[in-house]
Design a protein around this nucleic acid. Structure first.
Length: 782
DNA sequence: CTCAAGAGCCTTTTT
DNA sequence: GGCTCTTGAG
């Protein structure tokens, strides 16, 4: 019996297909990752494909990591030579080698959305564009959209000459792009676009990668945008031994789970795949292995309300299971309380794990009240999404020091830290230096080094030179091979007095920041542990491509809270979908939109949410909800009505929704005859009471700093804040054989506790002895 | 140049 | 409600 005998007939057909384009339409929970990994194994073990010729692309690092793990487990030989990576890291890897062909330096910086916004703001100031009329957000979105469609600034300008607004956008786009280049920086979209540009303009590079990636697999294909499609289709044209053109491209996706149109995903990539590649073989995976019959029926019914979709019907051999639970609460607080109590009881009485539960919601803002109730009941949890670790002020500041040292052309980073901590270099001085930089056509940092020759600066120049010499000294030390990244990090903290200042501050907030900095230091340490040839640039790059979902691991026993978007690809035995109200989900924006396809995207999102549940799905809504500081009255989500009655079990008090009278002073602010209502928060009467303040001494982690956002999200806080029991507890001990994703198998020779973590020494078969941090290394006991 | 207080915006989702 | 940006006083 071979590993392929465990597959169902469709899965098997997909796995055994080894040449030519293949489209796998894989419904939720139909085992697509299994198919992909088995197909890789088949290609290597049976079809004689060199592992080196295989590229598997995903969207998130988490998905890539999981696939890598599973591939490693079933591919006998050479699995480390398979490229399994995300779109963005694949591109970075290619660009680091060849981007000099496009006039960039190979140590380019990657800008996150914060940096982008800063740059846009600068551009607007420079071009005299009123940011009241043209919001940075809107400009960013417009530019990003253009890039998704691979439209260059020049092309955008040509095609948008009539409309004043669009002309302005074109101007901003052009300047933005030229400044990115000046700063030797790429934004997320550029990573894809520049790679395509590189391949199109450099035949030798193109041939190299076409030859290398003879077999390409793409996961979540329905989420690809035009640029990503171009990338893939450009790569996936190879010539075989017989001299014929081949497209060994295998894409896996589900049009019903396309939920990223707002981000530029082009659903026609999947809908028209067979037109792009006429000899495409299409395989549908419709058997679901995840959910009960009832859950699946609910999902099928909801999604059937969409018009534009490829026909598909999921089925399962599983039992009917529980009904779908549905409950309407008076307030959002009641809703949150009920969910928290439910979970706490289930864990206490029914022997469930916290990690069996997930609470899903439409918007990140909904997490706050849930979090509050969970804390209250002592239920451990982790929030995924919101503001990620690397965007916190203190982390960004220190990263910008590193970036400045790494790439002096990155003006944005330099400007961010020039006066952090305070050095008496204010905005006026910065502007003067900037003017000088533009005049001379040099970078901002370069201009700083010439500060004493900038006459307008006057005495301020004397404040600048110590900063420059500090950076120069640190830069110089980097050349010493014995000087590690950790030394550099410590020296930055020492030289800037960053932590000292926080310490003097003495507030709980500063304390948390110090802990975050410590955590960043740990991350550097574990980076050094796990990388063969560590470098500053490489570290910064890894950091910039981390998404919050990537930090979710299934080895921590906590309840997971996240948006439905983040939940795609995951599954949980027990799922709560809360805030099932018109105006929340589907969102107000899509309800009022002229574009009817928007509500369909919301419905797909609902479908994604429902299909995350394996055993039990609980839906809930609140009649009254605090939103943007206002009390809102929403009616139950239309999606609830789309689930057949007999599948639902409504629990709790069934009272008619209470809405404000139309003629009252509280008439809704949306206008029209909708059922929405809103009243200012001050007028909102009980039962909505302000929750009691959290106990500070017991929950220092739950105090938020004024700037930066929720500190509740990060793993370190989780480990620290939830008591001793929540520190990292490995399930292995000295003498055990473990597997590391990169170093392979080895034996644990030593384990030493350090704080909430363990330092584990492993003797690896291939790479010898290494010290690893248990919480990061994620060793698997064999 | 820095800090504090007030205005205004926000909320759809994120690699 | 909470975050960010602007404004005006020291």
């Amino acid at each position: 019996m071979s590993i392929y005998d465990t597959l169902n007939p469709e899965q098997k057909r997909a796995v055994l297909h080894n040449r030519g384009p293949l489209l796998i339409l894989a419904g939720a929970g139909s085992g697509k990752t299994r198919v992909l990994t088995h197909r890789i194994a088949y290609l290597i073990d049976e079809a004689g494909v060199n592992p080196w010729n295989i590229l598997a692309i995903t969207f998130t690092n988490k998905a890539a990591r999981e696939m890598r793990e599973r591939v490693d487990n079933i591919v006998g030989y050479g699995s480390e030579n398979i490229w399994v990576s995300t779109f963005h890291s694949t591109c970075v890897r290619i660009l680091r080698r060849h981007i000099d062909r496009l006039g960039y330096d190979t140590n380019f910086t990657i800008y996150d959305s914060d940096d982008q916004k800063t740059l846009i703001r600068e551009v607007c100031k420079y071009l005299d564009v009123d940011t009241k009329k043209f919001k940075e957000r809107a400009l960013m979105a417009a530019i990003s959209h253009a890039k998704d469609e691979m439209m260059s600034p020049e092309q955008f300008e040509r095609e948008n000459q009539v409309d004043y607004g669009k002309r302005t956008i074109a101007k901003v786009y052009k300047e933005y792009q030229s400044r990115l280049k000046k700063n030797n920086a790429l934004d997320f979209d550029d990573l894809i676009n520049k790679t395509v540009e590189l391949l199109r303009t450099n035949e030798d590079v193109l041939h190299y990668y076409q030859n290398r990636f003879k077999y390409i697999m793409v996961d979540e294909y329905q989420d690809t945008n035009t640029a990503q499609f171009e990338l893939i289709s450009t790569l996936a044209s190879t010539v075989n031994e017989e001299g014929e053109m081949e497209h060994n491209l295998c894409v896996v996706g589900d049009d019903d789970q396309s939920i990223y149109k707002f981000r530029g995903a082009n659903i026609y990539n999947i809908l028209n795949f067979e037109k792009q590649y006429p000899d495409t073989k299409i395989i549908k995976l419709e058997q679901n292995y995840r959910s009960t019959k009832n859950i699946l029926a609910a999902a099928n019914e909801v999604i059937a309300h969409n018009t534009e979709r490829k026909s598909k019907a999921l089925w399962t051999e599983q039992e009917e299971g529980d009904p779908i639970y549905w409950q309407i609460f008076d307030t959002d607080r009641d809703e949150a309380e009920s969910i928290a109590v439910d979970i706490a009881n289930a864990v206490k009485n029914d022997d469930k794990m916290y990690s069996d539960f997930a609470v899903l919601y439409r918007t990140n803002a909904q997490s706050r009240i849930l979090e509050e109730r969970l804390v209250n009941l002592g239920v451990p949890y982790k929030i995924v999404g919101g503001v990620n670790f690397y965007q916190r002020k203190e982390i960004k500041d220190l990263l910008c020091y590193l970036k400045t040292i790494d790439n002096g052309n990155d003006d944005i980073s330099v400007k961010r830290i020039i006066n952090v901590p305070k050095r008496g270099i204010g905005l006026t001085s910065v502007d003067k230096v900037q003017v000088h930089a533009i005049d001379k056509g040099i970078s901002f940092y370069q201009a700083l080094t010439e500060a004493e020759y900038i006459p307008t600066l006057g005495r301020a120049a004397s404040k600048i030179s110590p900063f420059v010499s500090m950076i120069e000294i640190l830069k110089g030390k980097l050349h010493n091979p014995d000087y590690s990244l950790l030394d550099l990090f410590d020296e930055i903290i020492e030289a800037t007095g960053y932590v000292d200042e926080l310490r003097e501050d003495g507030t709980i907030e500063s304390q948390t920041r110090i802990e975050n900095i410590q955590e960043l230091r740990n991350k550097i340490a574990s980076y050094l542990d796990s990388t063969d040839e560590p470098s500053l640039s490489n570290f910064l790059e890894e950091v910039s491509l981390v998404a919050d979902i990537d930090t979710v691991t299934d080895d921590t026993n906590v309840v997971i809270l996240m948006t439905i978007h983040s939940a795609k690809g995951l599954e949980f035995p027990y799922v709560y979908m809360c805030g099932m109200e018109d105006g929340i989900f589907p969102s107000y924006m899509t309800i009022t939109s002229d574009d009817p396809t928007e509500i369909e995207e919301e419905r797909r999102l609902c479908y994604v949410g429902i299909t995350r549940a394996k055993k039990k799905l609980s839906l809930s809504a609140a009649k009254m909800r605090m939103q943007n500081g206002e009390m809102k009255f929403n009616k139950p989500s239309r999606f609830i009505n789309e689930i057949p009655r007999f599948l639902l079990k409504q629990t709790g008090a069934i009272s008619a929704p209470r809405f404000p009278r139309e003629d009252s002073a509280f008439v809704n602010s949306f206008g029209g005859s909708s059922n929405y209502g809103t009243i200012p928060s001050k007028m909102a009467a009980s039962p909505y009471k302000k929750p009691a303040p959290l106990n500070k001494s017991a929950n220092t982690m739950f105090d938020k700093p004024k700037t930066g956002s929720s500190l509740l999200n990060s793993i370190p806080n989780l480990q620290k804040g939830l008591g001793a029991a929540k520190s990292f507890q490995p399930n292995y001990k000295v003498g055990d054989t473990v597997k590391h994703i990169k170093f392979g198998t080895g034996m644990i020779t030593k384990m030493q506790q350090s704080g909430n973590d363990y330092e584990v020494t492993v003797d690896f078969e291939g790479s010898g002895q290494r010290k690893l941090r248990a919480s990061v290394a994620r060793l698997k006991k064999l």
